[in-house]
């Protein structure tokens, strides 16, 4: 356990990122983010160079809400770097089911581990946890708010497949209201030059005002449309999302909205030849299975990038020599 964390974390503007929290997608500057993407590219080319880089380190994996990809990719990432993992994959398997507070859970796990990766259904839970943790906190998703490592995954995928992170029209379709990956991606990638957005959603699930205000304040262009067939031809990237049942208090609203948009081969005929389709997964009905064989479908390749970018993140946060080596 690194007890020096509080003195260092979030304090510096330097590229030294050991012991930093990642809670919001904008916690790292563009330069810091680029350094993570750079490590990710090195891992893709020569993973053996990083195989034992986190020997002896332990990651606390606290998933208070179900997850397949995020949890497994974090755990795989830690194992591939030579580290170990402790934790739980549902809150019923922890003392939370006995009524233990998040504060006490975090203070306990921080004694056993060098970093805590947490997903929690309540918004702001990682902010709260970071106040009581002696080790860095990585937000693996908090309610409908943020999912910064999914954004790193999305950005690495776009960079790798499009060869750039500028001059792009990015379409986002589906649940743009509760989709935390949408909010994180829009805020993060809009920092790159000449990025504009097309938001396609039903009225009830449109992008929140605070995101629109953020874009307006930063003079970033966006359009809101309801028809995917009309919008798709303008996009370089199409980010599809699932309408999330767990975010609705009223099941009738969920049933009414769940199949608002379905991407199929007919709609794909209207898209650019080099457009790529991303999806944070899991999908339900919003992408037809016929689209999977389209070379523009990147959502399963995206999952591999997710593991790689999480390896790069853990390496940057935990490897004491990472700065010197770079």
């Amino acid at each position: 356990m690194n007890v020096k964390k509080k003195a260092i974390k979030n304090g510096g503007k330097s590229m030294l990122m050991t012991n930093r929290d990642l809670i919001n997608t904008l916690d790292f500057s563009i330069e810091e983010q680029e350094s993570i993407l750079s490590i990710a590219q090195k891992i893709i080319l020569r993973p053996v160079d990083f195989a034992n880089s986190l020997n002896g380190k332990i990651m606390g994996s606290l998933f208070f809400e179900p997850s397949t990809r995020t949890r497994l990719s974090f755990e795989a990432a830690m194992h591939r770097l030579g580290g170990a993992v402790i934790g739980f994959s549902e809150q019923n398997a922890s003392s939370v089911s006995k009524g233990e507070s998040l504060r006490d859970t975090i203070q306990t796990v921080a004694q056993y581990s060098d970093v805590i990766v947490m997903r929690h259904p309540k918004e702001g839970a990682p902010v709260f946890a970071s106040k009581y943790s002696e080790v860095p906190i990585i937000n693996a998703g908090d309610g409908g708010r943020e999912h910064p490592t999914q954004t790193l995954t999305d950005i690495l995928t776009i960079r790798s497949k499009m060869g750039k992170l500028n001059n792009l029209t990015i379409g986002l379709c589906g649940d743009l209201k509760f989709g935390r990956t949408v909010h994180s991606l829009v805020k993060n990638i809009s920092r790159y030059p000449n990025i504009n957005f097309i938001f396609v959603s039903p009225k009830e699930l449109e992008i929140p005002d605070y995101i629109k205000n953020y874009l307006n304040e930063n003079q970033i262009e966006y359009k809101e449309m309801e028809n995917l067939e009309e919008a798709i031809q303008h996009m370089d990237v199409l980010y599809m999302t699932r309408v999330q049942k767990e975010r609705f208090f009223n099941e009738e609203d969920y049933i009414r909205l769940k199949d608002s948009y379905i991407l199929d081969t007919l709609k794909m005929k209207l898209a650019k030849k080099n457009m790529i389709i991303l999806h944070p997964l899991p999908r339900v009905n919003e992408i037809s299975y016929d689209v999977d064989s389209d070379p523009r479908a990147m959502y399963f390749k995206q999952t591999k990038y997710g593991m790689v970018v999480r390896m790069a993140l853990l390496y940057k946060i935990l490897h004491q020599e990472s700065f010197k080596q770079l």
Binding site: S101, R103, G124, V127, F128, D142
Partner: peptide
């Protein structure tokens, strides 16, 4: 998170004085 966690301070920051709008320091 403040809706379920015990012994948590409710902290807010002023965002817009004209509309008296505050932002929760946890969920924003």
């Amino acid at each position: 998170i403040t809706s379920i966690e015990k012994n948590v301070s409710h902290k807010f920051e002023l965002v817009d004085g004209k509309t008296k709008t505050y932002k929760c320091c946890y969920c924003e």
